[in-house]
Design a protein around this nucleic acid. Structure first.
Length: 419
RNA sequence: GGAGAGUUCGCCUAGUGGCCGAGGGCGGCGGUCUUGAAAACCGCUAAGGCAGCGAUGUCUUCCAGGGUUCGAAUCCCUGACUCUCCGCCA
């Protein structure tokens, strides 16, 4: 939800943002119209309601004819209150719909354009020279780590079992992420993965992403696609005491995604699956520190990828490829030898006040005034990282070297093919 | 799944139709007193929309949504949630 006051002040800011996203400016104008309509409806209602209250108080104190006249007038007013109130409700509904159609204001500096217009900020680590690399599934099967066939038998396409060392490896990766985050003062959390519609909508996942989301009709609950959802909704309708500092949480949970519309893409292995695990960073932050905090989250992600000894690059996602809540997004992409290209493993978004405004999460500033917080999120550790670990650290015989940081958690420095 | 109880201002609680946006206690903040602190006493103590440069005004909010009424925290209906007991499952 964008800031209507800012919109009134500077509508062109939002028009420019829409252009950068490659989206229509008309939704901005519709919102401006809806805002004006609501305010004038509200003014009409308040005038009538105010008179009703004033006269209503005189009724019990008056007598005879005077009372009869008052009652007649207040009766009229009651009807007017009803119609003007209905007009306000209608105008508010239109405003709400118009709000949903306008995505967050893009942060200045974000590249304009679509999916392919990202800017590479840096490339870190040497791309390994592996002649005839095996892909992660081939490796995973040799190691007895990944079982896609039985995943499909039991649950269908894009489901899998992590077995043996695969299960342990995932656990170790998540655990390493948790350790790092706790070291940096994040509050660790295990969140619910089933949430109510309002929580889903509040975080902005029922808009363009609605078809991505699993829904349990019998219970009117959604399965979350990321723990960003329960983390963002955690402080819904609260006023936080931030003391001028970001408040950071780290939640790990299973994530569920329908992957609708991705037929034929990444059908091999566990790159794109319906269910995976992820440790997600989330920060509630005073807005003036949000940009800085965003870079810090990116820093945590990079530090983590370095621990996994993965070559990666950082891209600044183009405006058109941002989610509707995000003002800016940086992705870390790890190198995949089997594909000879970089693939996304982490993603951090600055949602500024967009998400918090919808969820009504505020804080008290230094003067004690309540203001909307900024929210930010970022991936720390996830199942998909197993793909990059297996492929980048593979040896000619199919064994896989274990990055130093994971060795204590796995109790070994080499994963060896079984049988 | 069955039966019952409940949801009021940070917390506890009062409030069965107008004097209630709402009293009391606790907590919090400020002050008097004190060398300092405690105690005592005094005062303040919600969030939000709209209009206004501002003082301020106005409206909304007593779980939510409908209804009755000139007027609803209070009466009626529906729903959500919480708690207790029973059953069932783990």
């Amino acid at each position: 939800m964008i800031d209507l006051r800012l919109l009134r002040e500077d509508p062109d800011l939002f028009r420019a943002s829409q252009r950068a996203r490659g989206e229509s400016e008309s939704s901005v104008d519709r919102l401006i119209g809806a805002d004006e309509a609501r305010r004038s409806a509200l003014t009409r209602f308040e005038a009538v309601r105010s008179e009703q209250k004033t006269l209503g108080k005189q009724v019990p104190r008056s007598q005879g004819e005077e009372k009869a006249a008052l009652l007649e007038r207040t009766k009229e007013l009651a009807a007017e209150v009803k119609t003007t109130e209905a007009a306000v409700a209608e105008a508010e509904e239109e405003l709400r719909l118009a709000q949903l159609a306008v995505p967050n204001l893009v942060e200045s500096g974000a590249p304009a354009g679509g999916e392919d217009d990202y800017v590479v900020l840096k490339e870190i680590g040497a791309i390994p020279d592996i002649p005839e690399p095996r892909d992660h599934l081939a490796l995973g099967e040799m190691l007895g780590a990944i079982d896609m066939e039985r995943g499909a038998k039991v649950s269908g396409a894009r489901f899998y079992y992590l077995t043996g060392i695969g299960a342990l490896l995932e656990n170790a990766v998540l655990q390493l992420g948790i350790q790092q985050a706790v070291e940096y003062g994040f509050t660790p959390m295990v969140p619910p993965v089933l949430v109510k519609p309002e929580s889903m909508e509040g975080t902005g996942f029922l808009g363009a992403h609605a078809s991505e989301v699993y829904y349990l009709q019998n219970d009117d609950l959604f399965l979350v696609g990321t723990s960003e959802v329960p983390l963002a909704a955690y402080h819904k309708d609260e006023i936080l005491n931030l003391d001028g500092q970001p408040r950071r949480y780290l939640a790990w949970s299973t994530c569920f995604r329908r992957e609708a519309g991705s037929y034929g893409k990444d059908t091999r292995g566990i790159i794109r699956v319906h269910q995976f695990n992820k440790a997600e960073m989330f920060s509630y932050c005073p807005p003036d520190l949000a940009h800085e905090e965003h870079l810090r989250l990116l820093g945590f992600e990079e530090e983590f990828l370095a621990k996994l000894e993965l070559p990666y690059r950082v891209i600044d996602t183009a405006a058109g490829d941002l989610g509707s809540s995000a003002a800016r997004k940086y992705d870390c992409e790890a190198w995949l030898p089997s594909q000879q290209r970089y693939r996304e493993v982490t993603s951090t978004s600055n949602c500024t006040t967009f998400q918090a405004r919808r969820l009504n999460v505020r804080y008290r500033d230094a003067e004690g005034k309540t203001q909307t917080v900024s929210t930010l999120n970022g991936t720390l550790a996830t199942t998909r990282m197993l793909v990059a670990i297996l492929e980048n650290h593979q040896q000619p015989d199919g064994s896989v070297r274990v990055p130093k940081a994971l060795q204590p958690l796995l109790g070994r420095d080499l994963l060896e093919p079984v049988a």
